[in-house]
Write a protein that binds this DNA or RNA. Structure first.
Lengths: 343, 343
DNA sequence: GTTAGCACTCTAGGTTTCCGAGTGCTAATC
DNA sequence: GATTAGCACTCGGAAACCTAGAGTGCTAAC
């Protein structure tokens, strides 16, 4: 870190990383000079590589084998060497086309987006849907069902629907339900769902309501509808990961799949990615929330209007085609933002 | 097939299968006599096994190695040898407990059930949700959203909600929406969704409606809401399959995962399972809809009241603990039926 | 500073060997 | 006649061994 990295050092590191990304094999001085356009002798390259190893940017799996980039190297590469290519026209068209195709509800679009990310990157696609709480309230309805059950339906302005079945001890009169709904719809106009929730909770405390049991009930019902707050996650293309040679052995694979079965870990990580804006890159164990050695995550936030509402990205091996994937993630996020805006 | 299978033959076949299920290794005459309580010499067993091989019930991977049951053997075993144990009290309790836990909407319960099936069987759990069409109609609502969009919400008596976003060219007056909904709610009372659909389609043809453009519109809107007919599938515990030694190599695994990514194949198979009632067992390539060599599927249908509405089951290797898994599937299906009934 | 040369080191992959579990067959036994 | 013991034979898989190739570090020459 304290050592200065020469220009040539950078060039060689870049070559090593790119070679390793392409082949998944430790790369040696020989092959490097041959494949890349470095007009240096293997011996020179060897010296430089030796330096890079000292700096903790490369390691050799054993004496006398090529070298492999460390996470630190990837970090450096991503931050200050890699120049992100522009996304190709083709990819752009492909992404655009497939996003349009699924002009259905938000959930479906996002699921399709996740699949899209996975196929275009050939790794795994992941999309975290907007938190319900960030949506604008539009309407709430209560529907009486047979058997002391009430269906509460919460509709946001973007057209997402959250519904919840609630058991009640005694029947409530349908007209009362309508009255409740009307009252609430009036009160809650223009708020976000998060604000709605706050409002409900505070009203439930208020004196006025204490004596109006019907009202108390309405508030309780609505609160229950909203309370369910586990953000949706779309994770597609898991099979792609099986393609990667580094996960060829069954043990590793199992570990990875188990890890993804518990989505909570991934959610935490994505939550963190949402704090910052734009493209972010998590390399290997840097983010030791998810104990994902050997895996990297490229994310970008997306927004409706000017609010960041969700995050999407690609999960692949640390040995991932960053230059290729970053623009895909970036472009897709922007596209989704645009789609959501016009809605 | 034409040969008669002696009683002793059956006993030995059973032993072979059970041994193979336990160890995943070809089983030889020696080990068989030792581990199982057969008081026969290896030589005798060998003779019998040789007969079984002739009948196509066993094969040896190569000369001079133990033998492995064929699909035909599993079929025979399942049909006429295996006696299904009663489910243990413990399992019963476990299943019951976990089903209760998720007393939320039908979808959530079924998803949880799928997970439950996977963990208790230690294979993969699968649940096909009831087709929307089989539900009883309860109510339809139209909600106007900003930007020429209408949200149609279809509610069934069981409390499932199907919603659909519809773009319209020109705004429809909110009051008209209410009128439409009222009319439909009156007309469609007591029908199943499937019947509702038929009715809508026929009404759209009728003279009377031809001249009432508003009505025509209402019908069209509702029809769109219903038309989306891809039954939901919950598939959980894919990682469990990685545990199985027969899928240790990466190639097989990839194949399997790819196969499950396209859910349509599985859906076809489950659809077929729904034709018959109760527990059904598909062994390996018998069901060559899904090209699933080496995989078996145990299903059972579940119902609301007296109508079969869905199917659930367990997918595992052909070398699967049938005796253990069948009662789990059976019991779970019955439990789900009971849960849905009381709703 | 760069490169050629050299001795040395490992690993991956191919052979070889060898053990053990298994088989089929025949002849003896119950 | 069914069952079993005995025997010669087979084959796969693990262990041991070898080899070729790619790589390294170092030193000396350019």
């Amino acid at each position: 870190m304290d050592e200065q990295l020469s220009d040539r050092g950078k060039r060689i590191l870049e070559a090593v990383i790119e070679d390793y990304i392409a082949t998944a094999e430790p790369v040696g001085s020989r092959t490097l000079t041959r494949s890349h356009g470095l007009d240096l002798s293997p011996a020179t390259v060897r010296n430089v590589m030796s330096d890079l190893e000292e700096m903790g940017l490369l390691v050799s799996p054993h004496t006398s084998s090529g070298r492999v980039p460390t996470e630190k190297a990837y970090r450096l590469y991503v931050n200050s060497i890699l120049e992100v290519k522009n996304i190709t026209r083709d990819k752009q068209d492909e992404i655009r086309r497939r996003c349009r195709l699924a002009g259905k509800d938000v959930g479906q679009v996002l699921k399709e987006t996740s699949r899209l990310l996975s196929t275009t990157s050939s790794y795994m696609g992941v999309v975290m849907a907007p938190r319900l709480a960030s949506n604008l309230f539009h309407q709430i309805e209560f529907v009486k069902l047979p058997g002391h059950r009430i269906l509460a339906i919460l509709i946001s302005q973007s057209g997402t629907v959250q519904n919840r079945l609630i058991e009640v001890e005694e029947d409530i009169h349908p007209e009362d339900l309508v009255r409740m709904a009307n009252y609430l719809n009036e009160q809650l106009q223009g708020l976000t769902i998060a604000q709605v929730r706050e409002r409900l909770l505070s009203e439930m405390q208020s004196e006025k309501v204490r004596y109006d049991s019907m009202m108390a009930r309405a508030l309780a019902l609505s609160e229950q509808t909203i309370s369910d707050e586990s953000p949706q996650l779309f994770l597609e293309g898991q099979a792609n990961i099986l393609e990667q040679p580094e996960f060829a052995d069954a043990g590793r694979m199992r570990e990875i799949f188990r890890a993804f079965e518990k989505k909570s870990l991934l959610l935490d990580l994505l939550d963190r990615a949402m704090q910052a804006q734009g493209v972010q890159i998590f390399i290997g164990s840097e983010s030791h929330l998810l104990r994902m050695e050997g895996m990297s995550l490229i994310t970008s936030t997306y927004m409706t209007g000017k609010d960041t509402v969700g995050v999407l990205g690609v999960i692949g091996p640390t040995r991932m085609g960053y230059g290729r994937v970053i623009p895909i993630v970036d472009y897709t996020a922007k596209l989704i933002s645009r789609l959501l805006e016009t809605e």
